[in-house]
Design a protein around this nucleic acid. Structure first.
Lengths: 309, 309
DNA sequence: CAGACCCCCCAAGCCGGGCTTATGCTCGGA
DNA sequence: TCCGAGCATAAGCCCGGCTTGGGGGGTCTG
């Protein structure tokens, strides 16, 4: 029920017989023995129900049905090799597309260098990049709208009954940790603690706060509450330069991933380590099957490498 | 070495999976069990070296390589079914061409009725007809320039050392006897024997003869010599009406196949049975492999049938 | 004219691969 | 929480392919 079709192998053998003019020559060309060719042709003639070859004296000729098959074989085998070639190009990293989605402004250094390394190593591949919040990016990953999602997670501050609420939603994904990012405090230059070596987060209990994305904001609240106070959040923005602007204007304090400070120069603000140590883990997420896709795997490797500079 | 190629069956399964969205549905569509589909896809992924399908939650999605394969599969499977269809049409006598070559003017009644019967029974087939001498027609058959050769042979008059010289050259062919044709004498109306019931060939020993084709001429000489004389041959022509004209003009006598008299009316000539009985056997020749080609076999059957009217 | 070579067919045997049944697992819905 | 659907896996049977070895026929050449 599944194999009642002309097989491509048969066509290849038939074509070899037609071009070489003999079973033996076809066998040599195909790298097998002559009886193998003989049997293949017998099987093909049986499956088609009509003779395909005429053994007339020494030369081998095609019947009309044989000619028809050979005529079609050209296109079919060409299509088959084209298909093999295309998938081989993808498998061999000479082609292939990776859709990468990253959280906004979270990987200003990481992603570009990984993209550059990928392009250098596998020029045929194409990597596209769009930005989305971690929640949305994971959704896109599950929906098939991207192959790699860059996200971050915070360790749980307090141990609750369901200890791994944040990690739980990823347990069917491949989670490749890239790097852990320490959060530092950001204070106005004029702040009394701006010059401190390090500060406890509780020392900022009375300050107005400027928070980041919802996820970051939630975690900030958790950290502060475990330190004994509830932060008064006056502003919330994803945009790190905006945070600097707000802090520089003396409108509040903030915490911010250290990585975000690498590519910008804070104006009118000072950074200072805070205690307790607050870390953010940046990870690349993908689906188990996708990890084995060569281009996806290669891009994951490039992302991992990009953290080792 | 022979099967290191993507198989058409794999593509069919992959396409079914892609369109139905699940292995089970594909299995139902293909008429096999679900593990069969599962294994086919695993084998295909292994042979291509890259994942083709993403099992994400409940829905099944294609990777880029899978999409490429499905895209090619459309054309490949279409070509394959087109090839199957064409050869099936030939096998099912809905198409096919038969090249028939007949000796000149030897089958004025036989061939046309067989052609008509063939066209009526299998309208899709095409039969072409050209004329050639028996020697040449057999050569064409062996060269692949025709599928059926109509020829005739005479029984050996005298038993020589190599008793079957004429039959020997056909012993690797399929010889299908169609009918045996008695030769009759053709005399001028004014001839003294024109009104006889039958004559011995020896009674024409002194007449000038009009012979037919080289083959017929050779046989005429053999028959006459076994009757004790050597015929004096003044004219030789393949054209039966011309023979009648020559005989009618009193220029000689001739022998002629009875069949040739069916579609012409002799003018100024009389036919009379001769003794000893001289017969000519009309046969259809083909190659052993060609006999099994449906259209060729059907045409042979029509030729055989055409003799039974 | 005979030997030699080439090519094809046939038979037997080994091997791999495919399909099936049976079973377990996961996930989503009632 | 139970149930149904769907996929994966294992074991087993079976068919089909490829190989080796032997035989027959045709052609070319010495």
């Amino acid at each position: 029920m599944l194999g009642d079709m002309i097989e491509a192998r048969h066509l290849r053998v038939l074509r070899a017989v037609a071009t070489t003019g003999s079973f033996s020559a076809a066998a040599r060309e195909l790298g097998c023995t002559q009886p193998a060719v003989s049997q293949q042709m017998k099987a093909l003639e049986q499956s088609t129900g009509t003779p395909l070859l005429i053994r007339s004296g020494r030369e081998m000729r095609l019947t009309q049905a044989g000619e028809a098959l050979v005529r079609h074989a050209t296109g079919i085998l060409a299509g088959l090799t084209a298909a093999e070639e295309e998938v081989a190009a993808i498998a061999g990293l000479r082609a292939g597309r990776v859709r990468l989605v990253s959280f906004p402004s979270g990987s200003s250094a990481l992603v570009p260098s990984a993209l550059a390394a990928m392009r250098a190593a596998h020029p045929g591949t194409r990597v596209s990049l769009v930005e989305a919040e971690p929640g949305r990016s994971v959704e896109m990953l599950r929906e098939g709208d991207c192959e790699i999602a860059l996200a971050f997670r915070y360790p749980e501050v307090e141990v609750r009954g369901d200890g791994q609420a944040a990690r739980e939603e990823w347990d069917d994904l491949v989670v490749r940790p890239l790097l852990t990012d320490r959060l530092v405090g950001v204070l106005p230059e004029s702040h009394r603690l701006a010059g401190a070596d390090r500060i406890g987060i509780g020392e900022l209990a009375e300050e107005p706060w400027i928070a980041g994305c919802p996820r970051c904001r939630r975690h900030l609240v958790e950290v502060c509450e475990s330190a004994g106070f509830t932060p008064r959040i006056d502003f919330a923005t994803d945009d790190y330069p905006a945070v600097f602007g707000l802090v520089g204007a003396g409108l509040g304090v903030a915490v911010m991933p250290e990585l975000a400070l690498e590519s910008v120069v804070p104006m009118g603000a000072r950074t200072v380590p805070v205690e307790p140590l607050v870390q953010r883990e940046i990870v690349a997420l993908t689906l188990p099957d996708l990890e084995r896709v060569p281009a996806v795997g290669a891009m994951l490797d490039r992302l991992t490498e990009a953290t080792r500079r």
